[in-house]
Design a protein around this nucleic acid. Structure first.
Lengths: 341, 341
DNA sequence: CTGTTAGCGCATTCAC
DNA sequence: GTGAATGCGCTAACAG
């Protein structure tokens, strides 16, 4: 196990000052590039610091500055595949600078969330990002907090908060428009739990795009679960009722995998007979599908980065506004909609 | 956006003391349950603290105590599905108590790792957990650190460090033993990249279990990529060469999914004709497979929790020992090895 | 240019 | 019991 001799406390500024033969004030100035110090002494101090491998105690600095250079990342579920890229993006944006991230997983429990919130505040974080696991609005943390808050993925239910969420309506629209561009006209929609805003929004976007093109959807959107199983069952049902379908928009990559499976079972060739498009661009599912799956990518890492940048601005005192902003999504084209050359 | 009136600094202990009409020393004692304070005054202080909704500044406390109640979680890749449950387990073990976690993603870059390490040290974390993405040994952070370190998943290459890693040999063995118990005797192995210790260890465990049973493996272990594609190709090849195979141990759930796919293509019924077992218990893949996939679960969340607990002990000054400890894995039985009743 | 002084917010001696 | 003083490590005023 790694544990240095506990006797030797971390070297402190006064150690450096002593070694350099100056006061701790001058040592501080020298190390912080303040200009009121003679070049020679600065060199001595720097050398001393180097020799002792001195690094300033951020805790002391934080206490003095009233700012810690830390932010809290409050999430509801870590296992969800949505929060991870967002978290990466945020860590990315921050990590580049001088700020570190406190990760707190509330496990979807309000009590625990409050507990974590309080802990973060006690640690004097400079700001907080709240990351939800659905795009449905979640309760606001309120406005009586001493630090700014940005909501990512799950928007706050309070329009006075700033929330960043992926544009699911645009995603649904994008999917249909791609299929239309591929020459499809008999387009059906199989998606997940109707209680999710994500399901409703994507369906709405898809429907709107169809309407804009003067087309009717094939059947009504089929809602149920976000699972591969449902994708299989739904596709089987769909093919019986509407054998003339030539494209299926799926609410998730999981569903799309199930759909592909069923299509293969009944001998329909993808994309020649039926084109299939997923949602999420979950690599392990989309890139390994047969054929590989065209899908919508919500750009979550970018979303996380944006949230971090906005928070950073707010911390700097800049007004970042409020409301829920829908961030653009993008189409990832693979073989399930475009035949290979 | 949420930002309280910046004018009102956070209420401090002296505010409470003033309101309660006592010195800040007594206020401190009252709030910290020290016994040298009259019940009446304690009540007054508590009431004042409540009224001002006072919460002690952890930064100041940390500076004073020399301990921050924070730990660093240094990981190489967040997107890897291995680090997430470990991270959850650690967050879990810590979150219950009074410690918070700094998350640092080094993106697999040594430079960035050093950078983060330094930042964590400057923030005076009480300890560090290093989480790798493979079970291959990784470079030690060294022993000249002022805080204890525990390595999770990827062990340190230095035997003087404490490392916790899943027991892949036992996993391979467990898989084969289960198949043997199911009455299979013609067992093949399809796995991933041979450069991974995980692939080698699992293969070794499987081979040992076969040998113990006095059986020969069907063909030699097939190594290549950790992908569904490879699973399909390998299974197809295997069936041509060894049509009499009655069970396949797969190095990952992804590979197993590909194997299942190929088996279905050629009309082999799982598990009746051929039993299939995966590795990782990656829910989205295993639970949605046709049939659902029996697999090995590495208990990563438990591993994360253990790492956190060991680190905590080390912080408390308890000797946690050193070396690489392999933590037990478990079998998750689903329909791909046991026919449904 | 340099050093002395004064805190940041809190917990802990020690007198009273 | 209570409160004045001390200091955690550092930076920002000043004064020299």
């Amino acid at each position: 196990m790694a544990r240095a001799d506990a006797a030797s406390r971390a070297t402190t500024l006064s150690d450096v000052a002593k070694l350099a033969g100056v006061s701790i004030a001058t040592a501080s100035k020298a190390l912080n590039d303040r200009d009121q110090v003679a070049p020679a002494t600065r060199q001595r101090v720097l050398a001393a610091a180097e020799q002792l491998s001195f690094t300033p105690n951020q805790v002391a600095r934080s206490l003095l500055a009233g700012r810690t250079g830390t932010v809290g990342l409050l999430t509801s579920d870590l296992e969800g595949r949505f929060v991870i890229p967002i978290l990466m993006g945020a860590e990315d944006a921050f990590g580049a600078g001088q700020v570190n991230v406190f990760l707190c997983d509330a496990r979807g429990d309000t009590i625990r969330e409050q507990h974590h919130l309080k802990a973060l505040l006690n640690r004097r974080v400079d700001g907080i990002i709240v990351v939800g696991r659905q795009t449905d609005p979640r309760p606001s943390l309120g406005h009586d907090l001493p630090v700014p808050v940005v909501y990512a993925y799950a928007p706050s239910d309070d329009p006075d908060d700033l929330s960043l969420t992926p544009d699911n309506v645009a995603g649904g629209r994008l999917a249909v428009e791609h299929l239309l561009a591929c020459g499809r006209t008999r387009i059906a929609h199989i998606t997940g739990d109707p209680a999710y805003a994500a399901a409703q929004d994507r369906a709405a976007g898809a429907a709107a795009a169809l309407a804009d093109a003067g087309l009717q959807p094939v059947g009504t959107p089929m809602f149920s679960a976000w699972s591969e199983h449902w994708g299989r069952d739904a596709a089987a049902l769909l093919l019986t009722r509407h054998p003339d379908v030539d494209a299926i928009v799926c609410g998730s990559d999981q569903i799309a995998r199930g759909v592909l499976d069923s299509l293969r079972d009944v001998g329909r060739v993808v994309p020649d007979d039926v084109a299939v498009i997923g949602y999420d661009n979950w690599e392990v599912l989309a890139a390994n599908a047969r054929p590989e799956l065209t899908t919508i990518d919500a750009n979550l890492q970018h979303l996380g980065r944006e949230a971090a940048l906005r928070l950073f601005e707010a911390i700097e005192g800049i007004d970042i506004g409020a409301g829920t902003r829908s961030l653009p999504v993008r189409l990832v084209i693979r073989a399930s909609t475009i035949p290979r050359r």
